[in-house]
Simulated scan of single mutants.
Amino acid sequence: MLESGDGTTYPEPGTDPRAVITAFLRSLRHGLDNPATASALMALAAQADRDPGAAHALAKISEDRHHALNRLLEPSGTQISADDFAQLVGPVMFRRFLDRRPVTDATIDTVVTHWLTSTRQPDGLPS
């Protein structure tokens, strides 16, 4: 479930990066609302500093989700770097696991808008 989503709200590929990224982050939020998923992820994170297997599993999950987002973005011609992926997913993870506040649609919209405005060139294309 961590690596492939739960299948209920997984987004479709699309030509509008804003819509695809927003749908992806909403899907992530939905997956993290599952107690089993959230607990498993936090258990891996807690072990990762001392257990190479847990660290590898976390890296694999992140890499898999990054590649999944890029596959969804292919029709738009946009691809994101690992750093961009962290900038998009990081606030969702922080809000969910550390801040312990709801990840609202407004939060996701703010994250996506900030990323789009900080990574776009004057011609509107990603840098």
Rank of each mutant, 00 (worst) to 15 (best):
M1C: 09
R29K: 12
R18D: 13
I80V: 13
T117N: 12
H30W: 07
L44F: 13
V111P: 03
A82Q: 08
S4K: 09
Q121G: 10
L28H: 08
T78C: 04
E63L: 07
L125Y: 10
G5R: 04
E3W: 05
N70G: 05
T119S: 13
A36H: 12
R18W: 07
P122L: 09
M1I: 14
F24Y: 14
D84N: 07
K60P: 02
D33A: 14
F94P: 00
A38P: 01
G77Q: 06
A82W: 06
L98I: 12
L72M: 06
H67A: 14
G31D: 15
A55T: 02
S27T: 07
P122Y: 04
G5Y: 02
A45E: 14
A59K: 11
M1N: 11
P126C: 01
R101A: 13
F24E: 12
T37V: 15
R50K: 06
A43H: 03
Q47T: 00
A57L: 07
L69N: 01
K60L: 14
P75H: 07
G77D: 07
L72H: 08
L2Q: 03
L72F: 05
L116M: 14
R100C: 00
A59I: 00
Y10T: 14
A46Y: 06
G124K: 04
F85Y: 15
A38E: 10
A68M: 00
P91R: 01
V112C: 01
E74I: 03
P17F: 04
T117Q: 11
Q87R: 11
S118C: 00
D64A: 14
A46W: 07
H67S: 10
I61D: 12
T78G: 03
D105P: 05
D6P: 01
T78P: 00
S39Q: 14
S81R: 10
A36G: 03
A55K: 14
I21R: 01
V112R: 03
A23K: 03
A19L: 04
A86S: 11
D123H: 03
V92L: 02
S39G: 15
P91G: 06
I108E: 10
L73V: 08
D109Y: 07
A40M: 13
A19E: 15
D33P: 00
T117G: 00
L58C: 05
V89M: 08
P91Q: 10
V20N: 01
